[in-house]
Simulated assay, not measured.
Amino acid sequence: MYSPTPLPVARARVTPSSDAEPGGLESSLLQLVHDHHQSSLRLRELTEKKKKEAIRNAARVSDLLVEAVNGGVQEFFVNEKCIELEIRALAATITRFMKQTDQWLAATHAINTAVKEIGDFENWMKTMEFDCKSVVAAIHNIHQE
């Protein structure tokens, strides 16, 4: 993780004015400017170093996030393809069952029609038998008279 490092503090070396030499104030100011410049350079280098480190860390986090999201998305795509294959197989099975059901319905309708025709024939036979008996009875009555 991130651990802050203390920033360097510029320290000026100032000599007391009583011990001042000729040009001592100027050299102190020059030393102060030089120290400030050095600390600014160090601070700039440290800032640049931390900036590069932050960019590397951000890139790593970004890569990890993309990897995590892509892993989930890839899993969803694989699952979606499996589901689509199952749907196609199920649709083919349903179509096959529909054709088979239509065939069964046609066969049952044919059987029902045949049974009705047999029933109609049986009724016709009974009617014919009754009519024949009626004719025989009439002929028998005529013959007995």
Results as ranks from 00 to 15, higher is better:
M1F: 00
S3V: 08
L7E: 14
V9R: 14
A12I: 05
D19L: 13
S27I: 08
S28Y: 00
L29A: 05
H34K: 06
D35N: 15
H36R: 10
H37Y: 09
H37W: 08
S40H: 09
R42K: 13
R42M: 15
E45K: 11
E45P: 07
L46D: 07
T47M: 05
K49R: 01
K51A: 09
N57H: 10
A59G: 01
S62G: 03
D63Y: 06
L64P: 00
L64N: 10
L65T: 09
V69D: 05
V73F: 09
E75W: 07
K81Y: 11
K81T: 14
K81W: 09
C82G: 05
E86L: 13
E86R: 14
R88W: 01
R88E: 03
A91E: 11
A91Q: 12
A92W: 03
A92K: 09
T95F: 13
R96K: 14
T101V: 14
T101Q: 15
D102A: 05
Q103G: 05
H109N: 06
H109T: 02
A110S: 14
T113K: 12
A114V: 04
G119H: 10
F121N: 12
E122M: 02
E122P: 00
N123R: 04
N123Q: 05
M128I: 00
M128C: 01
E129T: 06
D131L: 00
S134K: 00
S134H: 03
V136D: 01
I139G: 00
N141Q: 14
I142F: 11
H143T: 14
Q144F: 03
E145D: 12
